[in-house]
Simulated scan of single mutants.
Amino acid sequence: MIDTIYDEIVLLCKKMTYRDKLRLAQLLIQLARKEEEEIANNKVQNLNQENKTKETQVVKNKKSDDNVDKFQYIIER
């Protein structure tokens, strides 16, 4: 399937002028760079989300530990 698409693109490109081929190459490079940036941004956002989740869990665990300490103090008295 992909091979046939590439074959069709090659056939169409052969009909293009030199300048049109260069312009197409520029557009394809721009699209690839944009896609690469979006992927990198998504990875950063996912890492930030994971870090926030971990921080929230640490805070919850700390609160839970504090409550246990308070109960132990009350029980000991």
Rank of each mutant, 00 (worst) to 15 (best):
K34R: 04
E38W: 00
K15Y: 01
D3G: 05
Y6W: 10
N42L: 13
V44S: 01
R33G: 03
L27G: 09
K14Y: 15
R23I: 08
F71D: 05
V58N: 15
D69A: 12
Q57R: 12
I75K: 01
E37T: 11
K54C: 01
D65A: 11
V44I: 13
K70W: 10
N61A: 08
L27K: 13
K62E: 15
A32R: 09
L11I: 03
L31K: 12
K43H: 15
E76D: 04
F71V: 09
E50N: 14
I75S: 05
D20V: 00
E50S: 02
R23G: 04
E37S: 11
Q26G: 03
E8W: 07
D7F: 00
Y18N: 06
K43I: 08
N41V: 05
Q72R: 12
T17M: 07
E76G: 06
L31I: 11
K52A: 07
N41Q: 02
K52L: 07
T56L: 00
C13A: 10
E55L: 03
D65C: 02
E38T: 08
I2M: 02
K52E: 11
Q72K: 05
I5M: 13
K14S: 11
K43L: 14
V59Q: 10
L24Y: 13
T53Q: 15
F71G: 08
Q72A: 01
K43A: 14
I75N: 07
V68M: 02
E50R: 03
N46C: 04
N61T: 01
D65W: 10
M1S: 15
N61S: 15
Y18G: 03
K70F: 07
E50T: 09
E38K: 11
N41L: 02
E50I: 11
I5G: 01
A25Y: 05
Q49L: 06
K54V: 06
K60S: 09
Q45L: 00
V10K: 13
D66V: 04
K63L: 04
